[in-house]
Design a protein around this nucleic acid. Sequence first.
DNA 1: GCTTGCCAAAATGTCTGACATTTAATAGGC
DNA 2: GCCTATTAAATGTCAGACATTTTGGCAAGC
Lengths: 265, 265
Amino acid sequence: MSLAGLPQHQGGADDLARLLARALLAGHWQPGEAFPRELDVCAHFDVSRNKVRNALASLTATGLIERTAGRGTRVREIGEWHLLDPLISDWMTGIDSLDPKLVRAIFAFRYSAEPVVARLAAEAANADDIQRLETAFQGMTRTAMNPEERGLHAEYDVAFHDAIYQGSHNLVWRQMGHLLRPSIIALIHSSQAHVHHEHEGLDDSLARHNEVLETIRRRDPSAAEHAAREVLKRTAIDLGIVDDPPASSGAVPAANAHTDLEEFS
Amino acid sequence: MSLAGLPQHQGGADDLARLLARALLAGHWQPGEAFPRELDVCAHFDVSRNKVRNALASLTATGLIERTAGRGTRVREIGEWHLLDPLISDWMTGIDSLDPKLVRAIFAFRYSAEPVVARLAAEAANADDIQRLETAFQGMTRTAMNPEERGLHAEYDVAFHDAIYQGSHNLVWRQMGHLLRPSIIALIHSSQAHVHHEHEGLDDSLARHNEVLETIRRRDPSAAEHAAREVLKRTAIDLGIVDDPPASSGAVPAANAHTDLEEFS
DNA sequence: GCTTGCCAAAATGTCTGACATTTAATAGGC
DNA sequence: GCCTATTAAATGTCAGACATTTTGGCAAGC
């Protein structure tokens, strides 16, 4: 595949890396395929070889591509991508055609990890952490009704979940807050197709988020773990990963969600 | 701090980055402190500015340092380091004076995460995964008796735990296998001080590892989760994170391990 | 026909020197 | 005392030449 369809480069420093990375993440090239040569990239975007090399160095550092002298540049398998690198998370956000396999993998990770993190947060969170959770939740509530503020609502959503990871007060868990943004932004695009139950879905989602906040505030680890899992069950429905329950209680899809999620890599 | 005490550079390409990174990870510079200028590094190691810039680009990509034109280069806070970047894991392995805060943080993460991962592995592992677990375990058993093969034993240990993460068949969890190596290598150095119970400790550790293998093989998720936690309780003792139990049953330190671990960030 | 060795082409990696840009400090003028 | 212009110092960028690695082809020799 060539560089033909890509947008124009605007001159920013890491902008070229971002551009190429997003094309890769969107599947513009297949894994194993050859990536354009340095000089071709230089010619197409009319930039110096230096900038191209810097950009390709970023792509190499994140595991997206692999370069060897004399051979050229090849696209690596998805399994080799450094999904936990903040750069990757940054590049992923806002890609409309993100590989569904990736969205499911990230969500499956969150589904298994976030309850444990919420438990840790209920044990370790301090006043600042709870304050962050609270303001994020209030922001979510305030922007829930207005469809115009969908993007802002997502940002508060990200902030809420990130506050859980921060609240764990563990250096490693804290790093994973970055994965939240692409996962939650994907939810916006995905839920376009599920508008039929928007209001009930949002109310339900808010109630479950509130439960997480309250359980962490009162330092109840087991309840926090449970509440976080309930939030993610709701999210699984909104992401279209599991079927919408037949407007019944809401606890029904639990088993489905569990078994379904485990099948995806 | 200057470059005075650092070893000599051998000419490898990413070798300079490794050298500087290990000095950073070992605490040779304090967070917030100024890092030597490009030209000073060039002069000290007698390499071209190009190589220095490449090395510093790696350190920047992993969040170890922060560079701004005109200002210079500064060392970032530990909380900003990209601990999940494979490069960092690679650089960390074998550092004898690794920050104990880091060792504890990584272990606390494993203690909360690995049981969940073992559960997933018991649900998703295929024949190849179980084969990997088995050969790793056999390697651990074979090298357990001989103190000469301590390093090899650690490698099999890493392979065993990595196989658990691989067995989860989740793209995100798989990335975290890299964290195992520094954590387990640290165990070697640390357990030098606890030689008084080497034999019993190793036997006990092997038995617990075997339990993980068997529960995954028979696809018993809850048992696998429990077994993985038991392995890590043993590891906590060997790492010196919790006190050695008074030679009693072995289930006693459980509560201690749990409460102790949660206090560390 | 098959192998072996050599050479040339193509790609990435490296060096060097000059220049650009950003930041911070400093000296001067009002 | 404050604002501004200048200077110094550091990182960022450029352009061109050269080095190194890999691949493939071609030809000589068995």
